[in-house]
Design a protein around this nucleic acid. Sequence first.
RNA 1: GGUCCCGUGGUGAAGUCUGGAGUUCACGCCGGCCUGUCAAGCCGGAGGUCGCGGGUUCAAAUCCCGUCGGGACCGCCA
Length: 585
Amino acid sequence: MTPRTPSIRPTSLRTHRCGDLRREHIGQLVRLTGWVARRREHGEHLAFLDLRDASGVVQCVVAEHIDARSEYVVSISGTVRARPDGTINANLATGEIEIGEAEVEILGTAEPPPFPIDQRADAVDEGLRLEYRYLDLRRERMQRNLRARAAVNSAMRASMESQGFVEVETPLLVPSTPEGAREFLVPSRKEHGAFYALPQSPQLFKQLLMVAGLDRYYQLARCLRDEDLRADRQYEFTQLDIEMSFVGVDDVLAAISDAVLDAAEAVTGTRPGEIRRITWREAMERFGSDKPDLRFGMELVDLGEVFSATAFKAFAGSGAIKGLRVEGAASTYGRNQLDKLTDRAKSLGAKGLVWIKVAADAALESPVAKFFSDAERDALLDATGAKEGDLVLIVADEWHRACEVAGTLRNDLGRPPVHEGPYEYVWVVDFPLFVGQDATTGRPLPGHHAFCMPHPDDLERLEDEPMSVRALAYDLVLNGWELGSGSIRIHDGALQRRVFHLLGISDEEADRKFGFFLNPFRYGAPPHGGFAVGIDRLVAILAGEENIREVIAFPKTQSGSDPMTGSPIAVEPSHLAELGLKIIP
RNA sequence: GGUCCCGUGGUGAAGUCUGGAGUUCACGCCGGCCUGUCAAGCCGGAGGUCGCGGGUUCAAAUCCCGUCGGGACCGCCA
């Protein structure tokens, strides 16, 4: 991380911070405060205390016996001096100096911590770490992560300010809206039976700020979604949320790119190059994902041509046939593992998985090889580039599913850990306006949300071929994680009604559900669009963490609890009564 | 709602498949020794409801069922 070294004034309790001391301080009488990180005793008349504060660690030499144990909070006075020859510690930033003739005053004693306060705690049960999060956060790794997060926030704010964005805070108590993620509800005390919702995002408010003429809005916004938690998902998370007026797609991407690249540079010290773009269609075709991880190859191979006239029933008539070449895996994948891969494919919704091992002389080893003609075999090897010793996996299904399943297998088999390799940012553009259809009504379902602008080139097909219409919607992806998404919004009432009608939402229903949001657009709404970047995910990847809990000070477990506070917890019956609530056992 | 993995002195791990005395290793903790260490070293010691409950068995950390907690994933996350 680029060391941002704010000048820390002395306080009434200390003259310096431990980690700031260097050769230039030699000779100075200093007073330090911090925690005893480690103690090395050499009898009555020599002991080394490693003193730790937020800035780092410094070695103090104590000549008299003092009972200062691990994690005791102490004040140490002494003179900075050069370490004797041969005792310099190159692994320590302060390793050239030490505090000599240190006098120790114990400010507070400490029980032995339930786990070590050093890198060894990386292996400690995470539930225990979360129960004692205040001790976990003392550790260098967590301090580094929280500071990286602060650096990201700071860089993003600076970027937004320099681009003319205005920070506006939007409400946390908002109306419940029918679409989207499950909401957390907050009961109204004054109107029993009525509820606020906590915002999934400030979406509606930020668009109203455009109607209001703010021109450019941003916020480091807390968002809350009552959906199951994952490595990259918490109930509450933070987004850099922006909205801009009088812009097209390129303008929004440029604004966000600036902020994200600035943030990345603030953490890593290196500014990534311009973020490349890929269309959604191409991402699905080549990587089988709308959040492709571009750090590795193993691109999907379209085998529709190869098997266009195949006799193999499982392939014939499929919407798409996608192949995946796994180099050198023929010998390492036994029957058991191949069965597991097949189960994985099925759990992802595929009808099955075809596996083919390439043996000597281009012979195919597979339960279904007998269905392939020689020409198909040659074309398959040619298309995939598979050679002896390689494994080829093939998924045949409806186009989207075939791509998705093959893409997930690609990730399963080839994806490096998130902290390895380069940072591969990519804009995924031209998302479809609709994804899939409602099982009962057959109506198309919105891809991003119902207020997303259709691609102008596709507008004429809106009613006739809605599923082929692209949206002015885009995602930012980093190393296979979706960092955020956004779109140009519909600002025209007539077009909005056309989209609603396609979604099966009548004027009356639209007015009932979104009236407070749509009516303002009758009073002059500028063309506008926006984006939101998931801060937790960005920081996690930049910090080399595989889980966003590692970059959140006080996260929840996967089941949504907080082992430190015990939340969620039951409340007093009187509390419930005041809110007009009753618990159903 | 579902699939899978994990739970053993304060911490981390081995032991579980193939039942046989709470066994082992490292760290930490407590005490002693030690004047240049830096995850100090040496000696000694304490510390356990093998997550919990039930079952099978002469015998359960180990096998079976249930349950709780943690994690990964599917569904879900416009």
